[in-house]
Design a protein around this nucleic acid. Structure first.
Lengths: 196, 196
DNA sequence: CTATGATTTGAACAGGTGTTCAGTTAACAC
DNA sequence: GTGTTAACTGAACACCTGTTCAAATCATAG
């Protein structure tokens, strides 16, 4: 009855399509990449892609959704300890996690406008709930451990500052990921007026 | 001899092409916008664009180059006074200037990868020389007015944090541009460990 | 009015787009 | 071997792409 278990290509080709799309979308942008280019990278004809993906938009959306949901899962247990400890932990986590996934981060940030409205809404909600974790940390320290005038503004400032690392960081560069993270921990602490 | 001075359309159509391209590129992305869409926005056929622009790439490049050079000119006299004053001034300038040109900022940041290599190099050099102005301020305060471990890293952190405002700011929102700027001045001061 | 030349049209060029699908290929079960 | 079915090809669909250019249009100068 069942045909093809070992040697079946479907569990190989599927992920290969995803990673080819990720790389090409991140490098050239969603609109600039054609299904035929993705297929060529995988070593297959364009028609074969449609055994795995209903359409181009779904390819982009699933990459983003997967990324955001993995991020939420990975950050699930953040926020323990004092506000100061929680902030340090968040900064270290954010930088380490994002530096290991620069393409996904870049894509999820740059191609939001390529999403159809309802897909955009979904991704935006996931992003919001990640940012809420940071804001909760700031609120916990507000008036006590931290000096924060506006937790919403400070959240946006911190997220932008931290995520910005993925734009300029180079593995061959002067500083290791850990060294960068420690430097950003110090900056983040001062930014929120954390007690020494 | 000369024909058409008054009523000549060329000095009208030219700028209209630029602003239509800016809006469409910013909203949908360079690759996703066609010359025919730009022409339609201007109310003209696609062929007419080529009286004003040699090709699509030049349209993007000139928008970016114009933006970066205007930014450099506008920021020419920044950096006077004490390091603390200079930083405050830079933060206020950066936020005010960028909030008045969100489309250009967005475009110049998102579509770097759509530039051909030599165009990219030029824009990147202009951006660098703007960032250098901030780094000079930080170096002037290093070891004295400021606590800064690494001026390069701090520059990147501050630029990312400040430019990030253009991504979430809404004119109808809770805070005025000035209120946002003052809040960011306070955060920037703490971030660099400026003395109260 | 006519002549001039800037400005724009509209069609054409060679090629690319996402997506579909009948038909071929290939790996397994029996 | 044969039968089954997942996986893939290759061609076709209708349409869009940036760019060019002869011809038409139009506003002015004289």
């Amino acid at each position: 009855m069942m045909a093809r278990k070992t040697g079946s290509h479907s569990d190989i080709t599927g992920p290969r399509i995803q990673s080819a799309a990720l790389e090409l979308f991140a490098r050239h942008g969603y609109a600039a990449v054609s299904m035929r280019q993705i297929a060529a990278e995988v070593g297959v004809q364009a028609g074969a892609l449609y055994n795995y993906v209903p359409h181009k938009q779904a390819l982009l959306f699933e990459l983003m959704r997967g990324h955001m949901e993995a991020l939420l899962t990975a950050s699930e247990n953040l926020g323990g300890g004092t506000p100061g400890q929680a902030l340090d932990e968040f900064v270290r986590f954010h930088i380490a996690y994002h530096l290991e996934r620069v393409d996904l981060v870049f894509l999820s940030y740059m191609e939001l406008r390529a999403l159809e409205p309802e897909n955009f809404t979904q991704i935006e909600a996931l992003r919001r709930s990640y940012e809420d974790k940071l804001e909760a940390i700031l609120r916990a320290g507000q008036g006590g451990a931290f000096v924060v005038e506006d937790t919403k503004l400070t959240t946006m400032a911190l997220i932008a500052m931290l995520t910005g690392v993925t734009n300029w960081f180079r593995a061959e560069g002067r500083l290791s990921p850990d060294a960068v993270a420690e430097n950003y921990v110090a900056m983040a602490r001062r930014l929120v007026g954390a007690r020494a």
